[in-house]
Design a protein around this nucleic acid. Sequence first.
RNA 1: GCGUCUAUAGCUCAGUUGGUUAGAGCGCUACCUUGACAUGGUAGAGGUCCCCUGUUCGAGUCAGGGUAGACGCACCA
Length: 926
Amino acid sequence: MDKTFNPGAIEQTCYTDWEQNGYFKPSGQGEPYCILLPPPNVTGSLHMGHAFQHTIMDTLTRYHRMKGDNTLWQCGTDHAGIATQMVVERQLDAQGKSRHDLGREAFLEKVWEWKAESGGTISQQMRRLGTSTDWDREVFTMDENLSKAVTKVFVELHKEGLIYRGKRLVNWDPVLHTAVSDLEVVNEEEAGHMWHMRYPLADGSGELVVATTRPETMLGDTAVAVHPDDQRYASMVGKEIKLPLTGRLIPIIADDYVDQEFGTGCVKITPAHDFNDYDMGKRHDLPMINILTDDAKLNDDVPEAYRGMDRFDARKQIVADLEAQGVLVKIEPHSLKVPRGDRSGTVIEPYLTDQWYVAVESLAKPAIEAVESGEIRFVPENWNKTYYQWMHNIQDWCISRQLWWGHRIPAWYDDAGNIYVGEDEAAVRRENGLDDAVALKQDEDVLDTWFSSALWPFATMGWPEKTPELETFVPSSVLVTGFDIIFFWVARMIMMTKKFTGKIPFKDIYITGLIRDEQGDKMSKSKGNVLDPIDLIDGISLDALLEKRTGGMMQPQKAEKIAKRTRKQFPEGIASYGTDALRFTFAAMASTSRDINFDMGRVEGYRNFCNKIWNASRFVLMNTETEDTGANASASERELSVADRWIWARFYQTVTDFEQAIAQYRFDIAAQALYEFTWNQFCDWYLELTKPVLNSEHSSDAQKRGTRHTLVNVLEQLMRLLHPVMPFITESIWQRVAPLTAVGAGETASVMTQAFPQMPAEGVDQDALADIEWFKKVIVGIRNIRGEMDISPNKPLSVMLRNATAEDEQRFDTLSLYVTRMAKLEDVKVLAQDETAPPSASAIVGEMEVLIPMAGLIDKDAELARISKAMEKIEKDVARTQGKLSNENFVSKAPEAVIEKEKQKLAEASQQLAKLQEQYKSIEAI
RNA sequence: GCGUCUAUAGCUCAGUUGGUUAGAGCGCUACCUUGACAUGGUAGAGGUCCCCUGUUCGAGUCAGGGUAGACGCACCA
């Protein structure tokens, strides 16, 4: 074994073996346990968020598999309609072509080609992370089976009237030329203006002043509204306005939507280009004049001068023209929320088009109940409030997209404009009695990507066929995902799965935090603070990292700043930390907070932890591989020391702690338990405790055999315990250590197929625990004096024990070998009751004092200072405790156990204080 | 406007139903190349638990109010 842990050397081969041996498949035995992978975008590559969530899912999966559950981690990728289409369109654009030059069929061929080339990136990267998904069941949302499910769901919902087609105002992305759902629009505050303009009454009797942030929409105005109670305008309601620039006559109407206080109290109404105006238009039966084209240019329904103008150019022109006509009253700066497409970034237009919708209200009800009843549980729990808030105000879902890449809507039109919905054209003809003479044309549009994602829990299990998987793995056990897609995905899965299977899709929803950079900023290409998980695993040079972060930037002017920051943070590039260290970092950082600031220091620390495990294993193997480990010896041939019994007790306590933490999705606590045991117990104490036994001529064969047996077996079990979080290093070590135990190697070739460690029925050895805790106190006490008194660790010491109880003596007796070796003592003397001791520094363990004679070793003043410091601490404590106990209220009201504890504490502290005072006096007297 | 979250050591974070002296990692200081490991060991320093008021025998923890910050939803033309 190498002296330092080298992750690169072990990771790749492990994974291939696991995958080839089919270890990722469900066993078919035991309780079902299932996790659905949120299908990553097929165009994507693995980012920190994926790596984090995948670590959590893999840890759960590996753990449950080892617990003997019938475990399935269902994986797959999403076709990601808009995102994928954009990628391919951008490539075409580079060649000076558009998708329209190719035509639908040829374009789709290109997309499939591209998917075949680059679609595997993320799956390969997932393998690097060690994810144990069942790759044989990998699904793509555009696979034939999934597409069949999508069509069936569409047809059935349509049959029930829950999918309908309608002409309505939608969010229109003029760059992508498609409708998008409310969720795909982000509203950000931006600086703008408010234009006030004069609208003259048609009869010349006066005028109204209206204010708008979008003056170009005035060309589509079909009314001006005032509040019905507004006295200022009461007489004008019912009259008409002559709309400037167009000369159209539009009515003045009254509607209590209008806020009298805001602006002039008059609102121009443009029903075809504003959601509120649209509703008002419906209420008042106003005409709806669409003034835009698909590109958000002005169309032919506006005065000739403006036709074909871009919306923003038109705005300028209209403002100029209004001003020229003296109609413009004033312009004020005004900040407003601007809706932008989350993909294109362009300003979204409310636009009147024909689209397909899902009527969600009836679907939402059972989905809300599933969470209210506790059948589905959010972790952390407060996310259910977010869920309720959205679900109670849910709007119909616009599911059609004017794209080419996606599931084509299964609707056909005849020449008369009749709509037929069915599985395919043949079915439509059959069901509607349409012969070939009737020309049918399929709807050009595709479905929102999230429509197919919503079916993920059951479509991946073979629905609509009645498969065993559907029976076994619906509902799945837990969904691990981010809060950003609760509405996009989680809510819709609940609705659709309830609707089509009658079951919930998952029992728990574990909402993870969002990984941010070390300063708490979101990682983004434009900020240049993105970390690639693969770079943390393999390492990357500074040059390569700079190229990654600044190459191909949308805003090249930022490159310099990013380069500077990158150079400063990673002057040497990034070291290779390995997958296990990265995974452990994610687990350790997975607390309940909603944002996680990624700290490189943690990765480094956990890389060191891997190294610690590696070297502890080296130690174990060096001491056992060529020796008798008693694998098949009878118990009588193996004598277990107190330390041996103790480490088993601590090990099983750790197993319990780990399992409790995992059950509550507290991966940080679980990781902490693993770290603490491995480093602070197993390495710091146990391995040190084996050295006196293994290296002593006085140890019997049975003793040595017992200790070696414990070393290899605890290590073997520890590898199992660590495996769910750190799959690679544990496999690598387990392969070496298992043959030294009764587990052996051979058939059982992998740690991942071993049973998870289980606490023995008889519990843990409490005596061993108490003995070693006593022992630690003695050692630490002596080390403390050495440290503070500057006594070289190499200097052998003589110590005396004063005031030792029978138990102390008994313990010292059994542990004397350990004490003398680990504290480096040359001589220990137990003082009799009346025996006097020379001036000494002392450590207090319970009632016993461990004395180190000062002669020639310890400076009088230094020791006095040390004692005063200790006394000060204890005095404070005594005072506080006395205060409490002399408080009548405390004594009468606090629970008995608490009072008892305080009393005990006081007694112990007082006793210690007395001893320290005595010490102080005796040293002072020298 | 409605809703959610966060504030604890220099940094990143734990702290279960209120109950010993508030913990960990990193960083820092001193010492130690002891034969698993310097990606290490031993010892140590470091905290006004954001502020105020309250409940309580007792508050980092509960309630109310404030300050600072993050986020979601809906929005006034």
